[in-house]
Structure formats: C-alpha cells, structure tokens
Design a binder for these strands. Structure first.
Lengths: 211, 211
DNA sequence: AATTCAATCCCTGAAAACAGGGATATTGAT
DNA sequence: ATCAATATCCCTGTTTTCAGGGATTGAATT
C-alpha cells in the first residue's frame, strides 16, 4: 500500500485528486495539507510514502517544504506539481530534492505513472516537463541559473513595487533610505532578468513570487 | 439525471472533478473542454444542463464563452469557477449570465451544493464569494465598475508592456507612433486603476488579463 | 580568521514614464 | 444623423526609473 499525502492550497483540487486515487488499488490517500507547514507536520506524525506537492502555496511553498522534509526523512518521495510551465518551478523543486514533477494540465495517467515510478525509487518527469527542461538546457545552460532565490527584504520590496509604490514611498514604508530601495530594485531586476519594473512584475508572477 | 460539462484548461483538475462527481448519483459528466471554444461546440452538439466553467482559459475565456452560450441556449446553467478571489472575475462572470460562482479553494460540498441549486433554477454563490461581493459593494459601489473591458489594441499594448518593452519599442513593433502607445498606456492605467506600469501588470494578472 | 551574503547607504546622468492638456478619422450602434 | 468608442497622432514639463559606479556593517558559514 502506497501512502500518499496531497499538499495543495486549493481544496477542490485536493478533493478531486482524492476521488481520483480512491479507486486505485494499492494507493491510499492518508492526508492532505493546504500549505508547506501543514505538510511537514503531517509527515512527522504519520507514515507517508509520497507527497504530492504543489509548488505555489501560502505560508510555506513547495520548494521550502521539500527541503525541510528531506532533512528528517530520507526515504520520503516528493512529487512536484504546478500549473505553470515555467522552468524555474521545475528546477527549483528538483534541486530541493523532489523525485518527480508533473504539470496540472497533464492527466490522470501521468499522475499514476509518477506515483508508481517514485514508489519504485525512480525519478519521474512527464514528457512535457522533460521538454521544458531540455529546452532550458539548450538555451542558456546553467551559468545563469544561480542567482534566483530572493532574500526576505527583496521579496518585501518586490511586493511594494507590484502594488505601485515608488522607490521613495517604499523607503518610507519600510523605514529605509530610497537609495537602499534602489539597490534592492537593481538586484531584483538582475535576479529576475528584467529590463524594467513592468517585466519584473511579470516575471515575478510567472515564477510564483507574488501570491 | 444532471448532465455536466467541465471546462478547464488543466486536465488534472478535470480528471479530479470527474472522479469526484462519478460517485454522485443523479449527476453525469457528459464531456470536458480545455477552453471556451471547445465548450461552446460541445454544448451545441450534446445535451448539457450545467457547465462548470473556469474563468481563465486560453483561446476563449470563461466570460466570453458564457456570453456566447446564452445567445443560443437560454436553459443552460453556467457555474463560474476560479482560483483567485478577485471580485472582477466574479462580477464579470455573473454579468455575463453565469448562474453561480465558487472558488477552487472551497471543497466538494460547495461544488455539489452549487450544482443542485443551479439545476433547481436557483443562483448559487459560495459563502466566500458572497463575502467578496459584499465587501466590493461596500467599498466603492458600482460607479467605477464600468470602464473595465480592454480593446483589442489595448490588450496588445498591455502584453508588450508586460514583456518589458518601452513605449518606443512598442510603437515600432505595432507600427504606430510612440505617442499613440502613450495614449493607450494612459488609458490602461486609467482602466485598471494603476499608478504606474508595475501596478498595471500586477492588476492585469489579478484580473486574468495576461495569460 | 576569512569569506560570503544580506542589508544598508550614497552619487550622477541619461532614459523612460507620467500628468496634462489637445486633435482627427473611422466604425458601429441608437 | 448623431453619438460613443476606438485608434490614431502631437506637445510640454515633471517625476521616476535605470545604469553605472561606490561603500560599510553584521551575521552566518567555512
């Protein structure tokens, strides 16, 4: 019996996957979580083999939760899951130790294939995910793939930029000089490879850095 | 027997809802669609009572599809559905004729309640949706709720802004003067109530105007 | 002990965006 | 026929962003 935990912030999605797996012999949904923290607590207290982990969640996202989970439980398998086909989700998740990755726009079959593969100890990524990863390799290799994660402060500044505050206003709000905000803005543009604030917000959304 | 069509661009979500409704006596999932156009075609060719319609879809979104559906079939019921709790999705959808609305982060129970209510000819919005609508009423009433839909050209300009193009670059790309682009940008800022491009992109995302 | 990272602060000049006017042509609806 | 909406174009002056340097501090890691 494969014990599965579903971690996603959309209850209806959880209910759906639950119903879908319900009829599959050999698989049992032993719990659910609506954010990363809940998932970790659940995995500590119960016997879980595979976590189906959404990347974008409030409180603690899938990437952080996965890192945390592997610190204590090496045998656990994590299947990454996201809506958007952005390569950063995928690579972040796999780098954090996830054993597989599928997109929400793939169907039931891929999900089951992934679960069985992971349980056997294999790595599984769906065909589409494979294409995305391959394309990303061919394009710019790994030399630019380091500066990605934002610091606490940078995230705050990013949020302020997104709601339309100017550099000066952000400084006032966060009690720092506008020059400091400028520096953070500069680093954000660099890290998210954006030419200006508009693209910055756009890229932030695509990578799930906002909401 | 209630004949249900599911329209969502995420196959896994469709599969999940399908599995969830499968066990419910009196409800039958008679088809699925991954965008608005497919949904319309399906409703023409088959007997459908209720369409579970995601708001954000490629090709043709839920709002347009709903309008189109009611032109030919008055008896049809449409249940709007979205991830984000933005009031614009909800009001746009209900104005287009949708008979109900629920969020994806509500569970199985709300979905079933909604389906049964709609089938009886009632309108259904989940408790959370109700709160959002109420709060929106209390805040600014309907006086600002007119200038919302973007023109074809404005959408094009918006997309260009989001990918980081400057006014001049957009003008060159669309073969129009930079002054014209300025005007469109101005109108976009007004329509989306944004103070600058960063907030513009942010609001556009929240209202599903991008992707 | 040395190093890296995050956070803070500072400056200048060029480029872009924003606010605010104003104007014309076309189309589709009333 | 008139009106509203859309798309097009133009100008000026101010504000903000962006690119490009620079620097210091403290905390955590090696």
């Amino acid at each position: 019996m494969i014990n599965v935990l579903i971690a996603d912030d959309h209850q209806m999605f959880i209910d759906g996957i639950r119903a879908l797996l319900q009829d599959i012999p050999g698989i049992k949904v032993v719990g659910e979580a609506c954010n990363g923290k809940e998932a970790i607590i659940h995995c500590r207290e119960n016997q879980v083999d595979i976590v189906i982990m959404d990347v974008n969640m409030p409180e603690m996202d899938g990437v952080e939760a996965t890192k945390e989970l592997f610190k204590t439980n090496k045998k656990l398998k994590v299947l990454g899951l996201s809506m958007h086909r952005d390569r950063h989700f995928i690579s972040d998740m796999l780098k954090s130790g996830a054993n597989g990755y599928i997109l929400k726009n793939t169907g039931k079959k891929d999900l089951l294939d992934a679960i069985y593969s992971l349980y056997k100890g294999e790595t599984y990524v769906s065909e589409e995910v494979n294409k995305i990863l391959l394309a990303s390799f061919l394009k710019d290799s790994s030399k630019y793939e380091v500066k990605e994660r934002l610091s606490e402060r940078e995230s705050e500044v990013l949020d302020c930029i997104a709601i339309g505050l100017t550099t000066l206003e952000i400084g006032e709000k966060l009690f720092i000089s506008k020059n400091t905000v400028e520096t953070h803005r500069k680093n954000l543009l660099y890290k998210l490879k954006a030419k200006n604030t508009a693209e910055l917000v756009n890229n932030a959304y695509k990578r799930g850095l906002i909401n």
